[in-house]
Amino acid sequence: MTISLSDIAERAGVSVKTVSGALHGGSARMSDETRQRIKEIAEELGYVTNLAARSMRQGWMPLIGVVADELITSPFATEIIRGLDGAARASDMAVFAMTLSGRRDVASVVEEVRRFRPRAIAYAAMYHKTVSLPEEFAGTVGVMINCREANERVTSLVPDEIGAAHEITSYLIDAGRRSIAFINLPGLLAGELRAAGFRQAMSEAGLNGSGERVLPAVRRAIYSDRAPSLVLSHVTELMSGPSRPDAILCGNDRVAMEVYGALRRIGAQIPDDVAVASFDNQLDIASRLDPPLTTMALPHRAMGRMAADILLSSDAVPGEVRKLPFQLVERSSV
């Protein structure tokens, strides 16, 4: 037998509107005691929300849709989705994602997400970049996660790349390192911003000039894991030159892993001869290197949680860019 709101209302001695408010977050005012009693009665009777009927009444399903811009291929996807899903579940919402790839454009994926009539839609990217949404969807997407909307029409949540680079560089300087090379990620917005933070920290310490070197991690104009690496040649040249660095900052943990290998080939010890630090905190890399890697952890889970809060509270300021801080993870490489 299907249990209705009326059945619960009759047992609880309240109105159907009150029951709906207790179970579905409606506008009815009630005490916490009444809300809890209604929930207990609903559970006792075996009430299951009719999502289709609820959708017809409200015009939306209790869902948050995510346009995933190659996000599922990223090791950080889990953290963004976990943060988003955890906050959504607290409001009785579920999260689903549709993947955007080279063969599917933004418009078609957004339309596919809209077919499910979600309460809200987020756009999440694999890495920090600028995204141009079609004009007709600027009002449909409620928040951008790990990316910026090119025309500043949507609230964007991004990592504070400049702040993170400034912090990790200052950490190296405070540890007594004075000649720091940065093997960076060419062609990426994250790399550009991290280089700015690195140079800012070096300048503030009076170490810009000969003590500051920024080198590309790969031969191509845009960084990718599949591009021909320049790490070995850079490390070999740096460590055999007249002004050897006493620290190498890496664009990400994968680059750091290559730096470790290159230093071992030439017999350099970490951190005695040269300190190594990085960005990302990919645990399967950073914690297993020998010595474990000091790195800046990306705020992906925090971005997911904040995105849900914005979408469900309508706390969005079109065009606002909110920068979330990284977290320094100290290990033994400095």
Rank of each mutant, 00 (worst) to 15 (best):
G241D: 06
N184S: 05
V67A: 07
E33C: 00
I270D: 15
A262F: 13
D32W: 00
R11S: 00
S6R: 11
R103I: 04
A124S: 09
E258F: 02
I64K: 08
S314A: 12
S224E: 13
F76P: 11
S15K: 05
I285S: 12
S333N: 01
I222N: 13
A164N: 10
E161R: 00
K17C: 08
E167W: 03
S332F: 12
A164K: 06
A94P: 11
F96S: 01
M1S: 14
V259M: 14
I168P: 14
G59L: 02
I80D: 14
M306K: 07
R219D: 15
D225C: 05
G319C: 02
M30W: 03
R119D: 08
P292K: 01
F279D: 14
P318T: 01
L5Y: 06
G83Q: 13
A90N: 10
A181M: 09
I248A: 10
W60Q: 11
A90W: 04
A165K: 05
I222M: 15
G163L: 00
S278M: 10
V218M: 15
L324I: 03
G267E: 07
R177W: 04
S15H: 02
A286E: 06
S210H: 13
L263E: 15
V274K: 10
F137G: 04
L283V: 06
M303L: 02
A201Q: 10
I38E: 11
A307Q: 13
A256M: 04
E320H: 06
S313F: 01
L232S: 11
Y260T: 02
L298G: 07
A217T: 02
E43A: 03
K323T: 01
R89T: 09
S210G: 15
G211H: 09
S332T: 05
T236Y: 09
D309K: 08
A190K: 07
I222H: 08
R153C: 07
M239K: 07
D273E: 06
I173V: 06
R265T: 06
I121A: 14
Y223F: 12
P118G: 05
K323F: 06
A286R: 05
T78R: 13
L249E: 06
M126Q: 11
R115Y: 13
R104K: 07
G59D: 15
S156H: 03
A297L: 09
E111D: 06
I266F: 06
G187V: 00
R322T: 11
I266T: 09
Q327C: 04
L230V: 02
L215Y: 08
E330D: 10
S20C: 13
F182R: 09
I222D: 15
